[in-house]
Simulated assay, not measured.
Amino acid sequence: MGFGGIGASGMILLAVLALLLFGPSKLPELGRAVGRTFREFKNGARDLMSEDESAAGNPSSTVRSSNGAVRTGEGRTTDQP
């Protein structure tokens, strides 16, 4: 059994349909865009979780995000390498 009740034949049908709709040249771009979206969502969720943990333990602590910015417990953001 596949994702959400879709079997192997359903997955193959979806892949063929996506290939017909988007074409072979657009599918890699579409896959990369979806991957970047999921990665950004995961990083944002991780940042929120670490902010919650740091705020509960030490309100003046700092959190470094994935892009190098430092967020203080007071809500200020500074760009540091």
Rank of each mutant, 00 (worst) to 15 (best):
28 P>C: 00
28 P>S: 12
29 E>V: 07
30 L>K: 05
30 L>I: 13
33 A>R: 04
33 A>L: 12
34 V>F: 08
34 V>G: 07
34 V>Q: 05
35 G>P: 08
35 G>M: 07
36 R>Q: 01
37 T>E: 14
38 F>N: 13
38 F>P: 13
39 R>G: 06
40 E>D: 12
40 E>P: 04
40 E>M: 07
41 F>E: 09
41 F>S: 06
43 N>F: 09
43 N>G: 13
44 G>S: 02
47 D>T: 14
47 D>H: 09
47 D>G: 11
48 L>Q: 04
50 S>M: 10
50 S>G: 06
51 E>S: 04
51 E>Q: 11
52 D>R: 06
53 E>Y: 12
54 S>Y: 00
55 A>S: 14
55 A>Q: 05
56 A>H: 02
56 A>N: 06
56 A>L: 08
57 G>I: 12
58 N>S: 02
58 N>C: 08
58 N>K: 07
59 P>T: 02
59 P>I: 00
61 S>K: 00
61 S>N: 09
61 S>H: 01
62 T>A: 03
64 R>W: 00
65 S>I: 06
65 S>P: 06
66 S>P: 09
66 S>G: 15
66 S>A: 15
68 G>A: 15
68 G>V: 10
69 A>I: 10
69 A>H: 10
69 A>G: 04
69 A>S: 05
70 V>M: 09
73 G>P: 06
73 G>Q: 03
73 G>C: 00
73 G>H: 08
74 E>L: 07
74 E>G: 02
77 T>K: 07
77 T>E: 11
78 T>W: 04
78 T>F: 05
78 T>P: 01
79 D>G: 14
80 Q>T: 04
81 P>R: 07
